[in-house]
Nucleic acid binder design. Structure first.
Length: 112
DNA sequence: CCCTTGACTATCT
DNA sequence: GAGATAGCCAAGG
């Protein structure tokens, strides 16, 4: 195992474990918070290398869609776990309990 | 080395 | 907003 993976993985795992139940972070946010900006594509690798179970289902794409193909086994598992944690889905986008500015933002998202 | 592959992202059309 | 495009970067062949 490369030196990079050893240190990178630890940093990523630490951030992922810190994501509160029912909330999500994007791959890019996790990478950046771990101290490795521009390493979004490496986050999934680090998570799958963990021997211990991680709340990987709380990591989603920057646009709040799940990273897996819709209806794939992993997509369904992730969606179900997020639903169990109180998150909701609207048009493929995950909506969390995180306090939003207003009702519009909560329902439709900050953008749009 | 060069090329391809991703559980990615930002920025155009 | 859906595609296309271009960056991104470690790994593996």
């Amino acid at each position: 195992m490369s030196m990079f993976q050893a240190t990178f993985d630890e940093a990523i795992w630490h951030i992922v474990m810190s994501i509160p139940r029912g909330q999500v972070m994007s791959y890019g946010e996790v990478a950046k918070a771990a101290g490795y900006p521009r390493h979004a594509r490496m986050v999934s690798k680090a998570m799958s290398r963990s021997e211990q179970p991680l709340p990987w289902h709380r990591v989603v794409k920057a646009n709040r869609h799940l990273a897996f193909p819709e209806n794939s086994s992993l997509y369904n598992t992730q969606k179900q776990r997020l639903l169990e944690e109180g998150a909701a889905f609207l048009n493929g986008k995950v909506i969390t309990d995180h306090v939003e500015e207003d009702l519009d933002a909560l329902i439709w998202g900050p953008e749009s």
